[in-house]
Amino acid sequence: MSAPILEVPVLETTGLGVRRRRAWALRDCSLSVPAGRVAALVGPNGAGKTTLMLAAVGLLAPDRGHVSVRGTAAFVAQDKPLYESFTVGELLEFGRRTNTRWDGEGARARLDVLGVPLGRRAGRLSGGQQAQVAITLALARTPDLLVLDEPLANLDPLARHDVMRTLMGEVAGRGLTVLLSSHVIADLEDTCDWLVVLNGGRLQVSGDIDDLLAGHLLLSGPAEAAEGLEAVSATGTGRHATLLVRGDRALGPRWSTRRPNLDELVMGYLRSPQAAALPGPAGVAR
């Protein structure tokens, strides 16, 4: 497949465990995201997505294990917090004065293209413009890893498209690595090439999306024939069953088989929290 044999990880966690309010929000999480990848972080509410992101950017200290970022990490938190009384220009000034590396010219140019007025107060911008300003502030730090918590939530379709165009342009332009969470998988299908699935504080899936899709099959056939088949998860009504299975096997004419799409793959794993598709101890090396 398209994945190279070995890629340099920009984000790497080993045995990461984080406790929040006495309960484990994240347990025994070992994953890596290679350079230049756009990684989708998905999972139900409370799965530990935000916790993983906060740990990645250093806002939460691990209680167990390690988390490391090669280079600098920038973060856009959920709801894209900005100082609402600051004008956009003042927010850029804030960034310039609180950072050692700062691409103010690039940030101004980007906002100019997007039509965000520098003199307007952040609190009076539209949701899409606020998202663009928050992302511009993060990108102006010229990070190696950009972490975005639900960047598309509460945005209209046009704003979602614009945000993604900005991000993808940056990935193509200078090999930025992105980790972004969402619970709308349709938003991620064309933009992400790496998948991380968290469920109940545990890591379920981590890997290249093309490899994962090529490594699974969606079977559909008679329920009684499903007995004894090793499946990631199975759904069905009465005599008919649909199974998500790993690998590539021929099962005879009673089964219709096809490749799952990203949504089906993710749902298949989320349905059975004990199943996992993780790379071996060698990390991203395959």
Binding site: L54, P81, G95, T98, T100, R141
Partner: peptide, 18 residues
Amino acid sequence: ERGTHRLAWTQSVPVRRW
């Protein structure tokens, strides 16, 4: 309250210095 601590404390300036 506004979540801006996550903006302020993820810049280069260390939290301690902030």
